[in-house]
């Protein structure tokens, strides 16, 4: 039931909430900071000032109305598809793993991976943009050959916690996986 403060790879603070429902069932929630009002204001002001400058030169009101529509649409898309509020990893020893991420608008997307498909959970390294980061991922078995890895599902993709947070999640997941095997 502990909630701890960590940072993501860009230095923004995120919190990790671990809930132990039973010995075989744990839930990890990584919560990113809320959409800050200041950032939205700055962004909006910037676009509108820019649009007003163009309007001043061209004297065409269509510029202003399109700027308003643009900010509104951009805002909607951002909170609906981009900005993730929290990501949850629910691991149930005998059943499988459920991953869900809820967006700022309230939209949720959920996937479930059965225990029989799951091979392991590991921490891996990857080149991401112009840096190299650690990430937690689930290895999926190839149904034909159980020894090989068919695909990799990265976890906490949008919050990108740093290594110390990943290690904590990894350890508790491995405890459960070890018990169920």
């Amino acid at each position: 039931m502990a909630e701890e403060e960590f940072t993501d790879i860009n230095g923004n603070s995120i919190s990790l909430d671990c809930q132990t429902h039973s010995a075989f069932c744990r839930e990890f929630t990584v919560t990113a900071p809320k959409l800050s009002l200041r950032k939205v204001m700055v962004c909006t002001c910037f676009i509108w000032l820019f649009a007003y400058a163009i309007f001043f030169l061209t004297e065409n009101t269509a510029v202003l109305s399109s700027a308003i529509i643009l900010t509104l649409a951009g805002m909607m898309i951002h909170i609906h598809f981009v900005k993730v509020d929290h990501e949850t990893l629910l691991i149930i020893g005998s059943l499988g793993i459920q991953l869900s991420s809820s967006y700022a608008s309230g939209r949720e997307s959920t996937t479930f991976i059965e225990m029989s498909k799951l091979k392991d959970i590991v921490i891996n390294e990857a080149v991401y943009m112009h840096s190299i980061i650690y990430y937690l991922c689930i290895l999926i078995k190839d149904p034909a050959e159980p020894e090989t890895v068919a695909s990799v599902v990265p976890l906490f993709q949008s919050s990108k916690p740093r290594l110390n947070c990943l290690v904590q999640v990894y350890r508790s997941c491995q405890e459960i996986l070890a018990e169920t095997r």
Binding site: V122, Y134, L139, V149, L163, Y170
Partner: peptide
């Protein structure tokens, strides 16, 4: 007990 494909010394 890690898989050999992704050797993982982190943990």
């Amino acid at each position: 007990k890690k898989t050999s494909k992704t050797p993982n010394p982190a943990v």
